[in-house]
Design a binder for these strands. Structure first.
Lengths: 221, 221
DNA sequence: AGTTGATTGTTTGTATACAAAGTGATACGA
DNA sequence: TCGTATCACTTTGTATACAAACAATCAACT
């Protein structure tokens, strides 16, 4: 369990890069554990598809452009639905959580113009809290589970590092639109804002990896 | 791997019933394996949420009415989207597969009025093939993965056992509507038919378990 | 009688040893 | 030089042993 959390975090944060080979023994040595708990962690990560099985051992999963597009489409579908449902089902606690996240978001953007890594972590955090709030508002545990599997990808996680100030402001704006829509039980407006927010993220990520040529192309035959 | 398949199948088919305690040793004895491969299987099933971890060991997951509703809502969302996308992205191979499934479906319904368990298995099979075809047509691997995790639940799997002839006919009808909609690239009609098909399934399952009082209620405090 | 504590047995967590299977390198022959 | 066979090495798969955590039972004390 400890091993699972450690490896998962390392993958999401990009410490273990795409394509990196993970062998049980080296992980065991690094985490000072035997191979047994490592094996369990690997099996779980495999079924979450964060790692790819080879004929022999596993590597950290590689994502193609096509993957990114598909994943964001899926995310838009799921989170759009969550926003729409949330607008109907939300309770006071949910509203509270969303509001708090947005207040903090605004505070962070106001206080500092410096884009240091501390600020980015805080932004990732409030962004996460807000989405969490929307999800909880939807009152659908299963929806929540599937979204969390879609959101956890390294590229999604790291995307905030490449946002500029204007994009961050737009994000906050959309969060606040969502909040007010969910508050006033406006399904459609909540959904629309969520979709724009997510597509903003998608375009941003795609552009970033295009510009930086971040994809090692898959092997050509 | 072998252990994983075996246990998963047993759960889906209902051989291991909801709430059944699974201990590593007894499974090891039953499958004539050591505990190690059993452990891996259990970890995977846990992350697919087919089993629930206890403080000590695991049990086959119990589903509540609320679970069923949420799962079907999710399935409608995902498969509805798959149908809509499929109507745009489908290729000849996809169409072929869907058509074949439906032809077989019709044949099965025509040939036999007897509702024996052999027929039911065949129907589950063609139904599965058709949905598979729609999924493939959507050309979204990630969508496919998530749907497969939603569809695999015991109650969903077994639902065909309780369909009557009229409901089966209606299912086929909807399949054929979907096929023709996807063939002629009619997004909306494809989606609508899929939604009706899935909600038909949901209402059916809910009614069945209501009538047969299939839920042991969760413990009351 | 009811509550608490100790004891015993069961089940999981972790480590390790050994077998099996894949990978790579080298040497030999065509 | 190229291909192939063999051998050594690495890495995973499985079994098993032991330790730790938990559960259940029973007894003793209030």
């Amino acid at each position: 369990m400890e091993a699972y959390d450690f490896i998962k975090k390392a993958i999401i944060q990009g410490d273990y890069k795409s394509g990196k080979r993970l062998t049980e023994e080296s992980l065991a040595k690094e985490l000072k554990l035997s191979r047994t708990p490592i094996r369990e962690a690997i099996k779980r990560l495999e079924s979450e598809r964060l790692i790819t099985p080879l004929k022999r051992g596993v590597i950290v999963r590689k994502f193609t452009r096509e993957d990114i597009k598909q994943i964001y489409d899926l995310r838009a579908l799921l989170e759009g639905y969550a926003a729409a449902q949330g607008a109907i089902e939300r309770n006071d606690e949910n509203l509270q959580k969303m509001k708090e996240a947005n207040d903090n978001f605004r505070k962070i953007l106001k206080e500092t113009n410096a884009k240091d890594s501390e600020q980015i972590k805080e932004i990732m955090n409030v962004n996460n809290n807000f989405h969490q709030g929307v999800l909880e508002a939807s009152q659908n545990e299963h929806l929540r589970f599937h979204i969390s599997n879609v959101t956890v990808l390294p590229l999604v996680f790291r995307s905030f590092y490449w946002y500029n100030q204007q994009q961050l402001n737009r994000s906050l704006e959309l969060h606040e639109t969502m909040y007010s829509a969910i508050y006033s039980k406006d399904r459609e407006r909540a959904k629309t804002a969520m979709l724009e927010h997510i597509y903003q993220g998608r375009d941003h990520v795609l552009k970033h990896i295009e510009e930086n040529d971040l994809f090692e192309e898959e092997e050509k035959k």
